[in-house]
Structure formats: structure tokens, C-alpha cells
Design a protein around this nucleic acid. Structure first.
Lengths: 242, 242
DNA sequence: TCGCTACAGTCTTGTATAAGACTTAAAATA
DNA sequence: TATTTTAAGTCTTATACAAGACTGTAGCGA
């Protein structure tokens, strides 16, 4: 029986919140199947159609994934989802491909004021800072600085283990139980520094596209700050609005 | 009675196409009310729920707008929609405000190869090319070059009438019957030219965010090419993905 | 006898219908 | 002007069938 605390909120929205809470609390893990509509309807004491409406809303937000004939699953990360939802850099022919990565550095430091503020950490909290260069067809095109709260990613990069995959969100999910649900991005144009120029094989002062991303979990906790600096000689950032 | 030509396509999808066609053909004009769910259900010989599912899909795509107690309307352009859906430049405090505009030039020219290709025009077709500077709080921040097919916007800018509003999509809709439904954008970092520098009060070579936008009607016809070059000293381009 | 294929049954999501109650907004009436 | 009525979307429930996926069983061939 559904514990209805607020009659002013429609049932299907309450069920959405309930299902979201189960996922946030790790009661249902990414990739796992949730009970069927009929089962949930019985457990919650509502009609199947009402459960369906709630699930439809979560499917539209990519929290759940439906497979006809099989069931409904908690969405998880795989390369296709990353490419489709979280990667915007497109080559000049309109193709999206995940670039290769090479870690330059992986250190534990005290968070800068900006990092602490962005990741909602107390001042001087330790963070893990990863710097890597990303290549398309062996051409270095992007530099990334990734900042993670050490407390959430304690083992990452320990023991000189720099063998990080090209896409990190699947790693966060499987190794640390942290599932990225959304990301906010701010794009600016900046000038290539000496370091940029050296690593990306271009001239100091070349305009670069800087993407400042904050990746959030389902309950809106910021868990990753990622600053990318990207050459737009052969690539662009693509977006559609309507 | 709905003319069902293809039994393999669900009814609600067929109704979506039918409603979309009515809008594209201007049978229903922007801002106007469409028949109620119940009425459409009767006319088409299906259940109200099926009509509702079709309409819900179009509402999610911003083609239609529902108002409880009043009815369902063909979406149109107003400043709020432009700001929310089509404008991404945000100041460093996170606020979005539509900038003021001043037209520098408005000319009729033969389309360049890029313009013709992008707007799907025959070579050497005439276009209207508008150049304007946009200011936030009296500070010039963006330069825009807007290219429009002359055949669709024949009277625009004629007679030295440069008094264009800050947001153009409402004008396109009301004066020319052209409703922008979506836009594809490509973002790059470029260097300020001498002209950029003069008009935006910055140094030659300053990195600028270039946004190349193609605005499309509901039936995916490209009707506007807009290239913006924006200083990101006090602003950034904002995007959310999930 | 073992392995492979085909088919039936079951389960789950996807589509469609139908109806009633509720909420919101505008028009009509007192 | 205030209240009532009307119109239309919103929410909820119930039911039925289609389509897809999975499992188990039977039959056939090597």
C-alpha cells in the first residue's frame, strides 16, 4: 500500500519520486530489472496504468529503460549512451567518435576554491585531479582536467594505476557505485597557453573551445568537475534546440 | 473517419503525422486553438486516449501547447519561448537576458556556396544578409550574420527599414508565416578579426565563441543561417545533457 | 543417446478503448 | 460583481489485445 502523504500531488508523481528514491538509495542497481508494472501496481495499491505513467516519465528522463517483452531496467552507462547523450564533439563530416585517452597526471590535492564550491565540498577537502590528452585518429585534440572528490573515489589512480578507460562514467558506476545522470556545461572561447600548445601541437594563442562540465547524480549531487580545452580545427560542439 | 493507410504504424503515430501536416500546411496557424481531444476523437473515429497520446507527443516536442480548461494550441513564438529554448548565452551569474540589437547592414546578395548548400537553395539564388551587433547592458558582446532566402522574406529590410526587433523568430512567424521549430548549432572557437575587434571593443586575435546555427521549420526546411561570434569574457554558452 | 530445432505457454511491455472524477479557465447568469 | 455553468485538459481506473522475449518440452536426425 502506497503511503500517500500528500493528496495534492498526483499518484503517478508520487510513484516517480518513490522509484527515484529506490534508485538513489541503491536498492535497485544500474542495469538491474525492476518489478513489472503489474507487480508494482499490486504492491502500491494503484492501477497498472498509473504505474505505467510514472515509469514513462522516468523513461523519458533516461532514469529507466524499457525493453518490450523483457521488463524495465535501471539505466546504466555503456559506450553508446555516453556517445549519444554525453558527448557533443563532432568531426567536420558530422560523425561522433569517442577519442582515445592518455593520462598525463593523476594527483591528490586540496581542492581549489572553485573546485570546492563547484563540487559542494568543504574548503581544503582532498580531491583527485586527473589530466589527460585525448586524440582523434592519433591527433591530440582535447586536454581534460577532471576533478573528483577523493572521498568518493578513494582507490582511483592509486599505486600508479593510470590505466583509465576512454569513457569514465561506466568506471564510476561499476567501481564506485556512482551513476552520472546529467551534466551542466558552460562553453567559452579561450586562448591556448604554452602547455596547451605543446600538448596539442598548435600555436600559443590559438583559440580553444573550453567546456566546463559539472556531472551530477540522480539526486543532483555534483561528483565530477571536468574542464576540457578543445581544438576546433577539425571538430565542433554540436547541439540541437527546439 | 481516419484514413488508415498503414496498419503497421500505430494509430497514435498516424495521428501525430496528421496533426503535424495540418500545422505545416498552415491549416492551423500558430497561436490558434485546435479542436478538443473529444472532437478529434470523434472526427477520426478513435478513442480520446489515442488522440491524447498523439497530442502528448507533439506537446513534448513543443509543436503544441496545452492549457488545462482552455484547450490545446499550436505553439507560437514569444519572447519567453525564445529565451528558454533558443537562447543559450548566459551571464557569469547564470542569468539569461535577451540582448539589444543594432543592425549594421542589410543587403541582398547571391548566396555563397556555403549559404546555398546550408539553406538548400540553388546556386546563385538571392539571399538577404543581415549583420547586426548585440549588446548586453550597452556592452557590445555578439556579432551576428543572418542569411535568409529572399524568396521567403521578400519585404524584409526593404526601403531602408532596419527596425528589426531583438528576437526575430516572432517576426518571421507573424510577417512571413514562417515558424521556426528547431535549430542545429555548431560551436567553435575562432580568433577576432579586425572587424570583430572594432565592433566589440576588444583586441584582434581575442578568442571568440562562434555559433553556426541553422534554424528549421517543422518539416525540417532550413530557413535561416545565423553565425554569431560572441565574446565570452562575461558570458558563456550553457547546455544540459542527460 | 545426444544435440538441435520448432512450437507452445507464460510473462512483460506496447497499443487501444472506455469511463468517471477532478481541476482549471472562461463564459453566462443572477 | 459574485456565483454558477460550461468547456476542456488532467488524473485514475479497468480491460483487452498485440508484439516481443524467454523457457520448457517434444520431435527429429545424426
Amino acid at each position: 500500500m502506497l503511503t500517500i502523504g500528500n493528496g495534492a500531488v498526483p499518484l503517478y508523481m508520487q510513484i516517480k519520486e518513490l522509484l527515484t528514491a529506490k534508485i538513489s538509495r541503491k536498492e535497485w542497481s544500474p542495469g538491474s530489472i525492476i518489478p513489472s508494472e503489474l507487480q508494482l501496481a499490486q504492491e502500491l495499491g494503484v492501477s497498472q496504468g498509473t504505474v505505467r505513467k510514472a515509469i514513462t516519465g522516468l523513461v523519458e528522463n533516461n532514469v529507466l529503460t524499457r525493453k518490450q517483452g523483457r521488463g524495465t531496467f535501471v539505466s546504466n552507462h555503456d559506450p553508446d549512451r555516453t556517445l549519444f547523450h554525453f558527448f557533443h564533439i563532432t568531426d567536420n563530416r558530422g560523425h561522433k567518435v569517442i577519442p582515445d585517452s592518455r593520462v598525463l597526471r593523476c594527483r591528490r590535492k586540496q581542492a581549489s576554491r572553485m573546485e570546492a564550491s563547484t563540487l559542494q565540498l568543504a574548503a581544503k577537502t582532498n580531491v583527485i585531479r586527473i589530466e589527460r590528452v585525448r586524440k582523434f585518429l592519433a591527433t591530440p585534440t582535447m586536454l581534460e582536467t577532471i576533478t573528483l572528490p577523493e572521498s568518493r573515489f578513494s582507490s582511483l589512480g592509486k599505486g600508479g594505476n593510470y590505466d583509465l578507460p576512454n569513457t569514465l562514467y561506466e568506471l564510476y558506476e561499476k567501481q564506485y557505485g556512482i551513476t552520472i545522470h546529467s551534466a551542466d556545461e558552460k562553453l567559452r572561447a579561450v586562448s591556448a597557453t604554452k602547455q596547451d600548445a605543446t600538448l596539442l601541437n598548435l600555436e600559443v594563442g590559438t583559440p580553444l573551445l573550453e567546456i566546463e562540465r559539472v556531472a551530477l547524480t540522480l539526486d543532483k549531487t555534483p561528483v565530477e568537475l571536468r574542464i576540457s580545452r578543445c581544438s576546433t580545427k577539425n571538430h565542433y560542439y554540436q547541439n540541437t534546440c527546439f
